[in-house]
Design a protein around this nucleic acid. Structure first.
Lengths: 156, 156
DNA sequence: GACTATTACATGAAAAAGAATATAATCAAG
DNA sequence: CTTGATTATATTCTTTTTCATGTAATAGTC
């Protein structure tokens, strides 16, 4: 595709004909995504340095707070869809991070719990997450941090 | 994997041994991701109803504000990595949404611009995005909306 | 209690994303 | 200019994700 002679710009004929120059600057969904991404990206590097993928970390962290959880419940908390959860949990079981147990009272349901190894891993990461959170929010005063949490809760 | 008789929970022996019950409730990165997801999910449904994928919408919206952009610049704005941008732009060119032009002053660089069709599509979607944003933020007062934007800008 | 509907999870094929690397153009130094 | 380093984009190969569908268990209805 690089050899398209007809498609080479000949000169800087660019007049500023941007369609909607202000849209992105002020679009809250984009600002949220940006802020969320910037804060998360740093921590995700830490997660991968620990040998986990991000979805695995999210599942572990969710279990640390809400264990035990069915696949469906984990979908709701982690925001991942069901096939993805099922497959990731299978891999995590193989990696000795979680245990899956079919429930006797309703045998369609499978609960996931942390293994000892899963617990150890997530406990480490939660400590790192708390450290990182403090750094990530250091641009804000403590009043602003409270404000931010309050606003986010209202939006959820 | 369903037929694992040794792995069926016999009774509700669950004592509450959650590892860190409060972590998720108060972890700002998770709250941001949740809020961002909840707000975006509704709009992403609109995007797909228009026949676009979310990354395509983000690229179009970015071009609407910052056109023309090189691949590298689009990576920075959209938060996607370079191979992904390259591939998505190729598909979008095939779909007559953008034009790619190698730059004469530096032939390594490829600029993307909106086609007339791309402009029409993104213009529609920006209108829908603005409508949706108003609804998505309706839980907040206008003072709170300003606060939120201010805080997000500080975090970016 | 058989019959249909619904729920919960699993799976398979196709598409997309990610990591590593390749190519091509420019730059910088001598 | 020629060589080596750097930059911008493309491509390849592998892994993940997605979409649609399958299967098994339970719930509801007549």
């Amino acid at each position: 595709m690089l050899d398209e002679p007809g498609n080479v710009a000949e000169a800087a004929t660019t007049t500023d004909d941007r369609l909607d120059p202000d849209f992105m600057e002020d679009y809250v969904l984009y600002m949220m995504a940006l802020a969320s991404h910037h804060m998360s990206a740093e921590f995700h590097a830490i997660v991968r340095a620990e040998g986990l993928r991000v979805p695995e970390w999210r599942i572990l962290a969710t279990l640390a707070s809400y264990e035990p959880q069915s696949v469906t419940q984990l979908c709701e908390k982690t925001l991942y869809d069901q096939p993805r959860l099922t497959k990731t949990l299978h891999k995590m079981e193989a990696a000795d991070l979680v245990t899956r147990r079919q429930q006797a009272h309703d045998r369609r349901v499978v609960h996931a719990t942390l293994t000892p190894r899963g617990r150890a891993v997530v406990q480490d990461l939660i400590a790192l997450a708390r450290d990182h959170e403090i750094r990530a929010l250091s641009a804000l005063s403590s009043a602003e941090r409270r404000q931010l949490k309050r606003l986010l809760r209202k939006l959820i």
